[in-house]
Amino acid sequence: MTHALFIYGTLMPGLRLEAEMHGARFMGPAQVPGRLVDLSRYPGLLHGEGSVVGEVYEVDDAHLARLDGVEDMVPSDRAASQYWREEVTVLSGPLQGQRVQTYVYNRTVDGCRPIAHGDYRRYIREVGRDS
């Protein structure tokens, strides 16, 4: 089975964990509802006002299970998971209106810096950080 997965951080091309997406099929750019925060070495998507910029890829079951490990998601144990995979609706782009999965940050974000515009690539350029 295949799944549409929205990515918005270090898994994107040109960023630190892009190799984890090898074998996935690019479906298009997208924005989804939510907000981003800077968690130091990577971003976290949270529920809330705004939109988050990223890309959608098609992945199979095995690839998705591997990404769950990368994102420290423990299937069937949300409390133990750093990120939790959820479905969201694409707000804009060629996939507008489609339901896709994404990783939502599942820990406290007290003291974390918001990424107001929701674009992690732009943010790391603005702050001069390597991904």
Rank of each mutant, 00 (worst) to 15 (best):
L64A: 10
L64M: 11
R66K: 15
R66D: 08
R66E: 07
R66V: 03
L67R: 05
L67G: 01
D68P: 13
D68G: 04
E71A: 01
E71W: 06
M73Q: 13
V74N: 09
P75V: 02
S76V: 13
S76N: 15
S76M: 15
D77K: 14
R78T: 07
R78E: 12
A79H: 10
A79I: 08
A79G: 06
S81E: 08
Q82G: 05
Q82E: 15
Y83I: 10
W84C: 09
W84I: 13
R85Y: 02
R85V: 03
R85D: 01
E86R: 12
E86Y: 11
E86M: 10
E87A: 13
V88F: 08
T89P: 04
V90I: 03
L91A: 00
S92T: 07
G93V: 00
G93E: 02
P94R: 09
P94A: 14
L95K: 01
Q96Y: 07
Q96L: 07
Q96P: 01
Q96D: 06
Q96E: 14
Q96V: 01
G97M: 07
G97H: 07
G97F: 06
G97N: 02
Q98D: 04
V100R: 00
Q101K: 11
T102M: 01
T102H: 03
T102S: 02
T102N: 04
Y103E: 06
Y103S: 06
Y103R: 13
V104T: 13
V104R: 15
Y105F: 15
Y105E: 02
N106K: 10
N106A: 04
N106I: 05
R107V: 03
T108M: 13
D110V: 04
G111I: 06
G111H: 14
C112K: 09
C112Y: 08
R113N: 05
R113F: 12
P114Q: 14
P114H: 09
I115V: 11
A116I: 05
G118Y: 00
G118R: 06
D119V: 09
R121Q: 05
R121L: 09
R122S: 13
R122V: 12
Y123Q: 03
Y123F: 06
I124T: 05
R125S: 13
V127Y: 08
V127H: 11
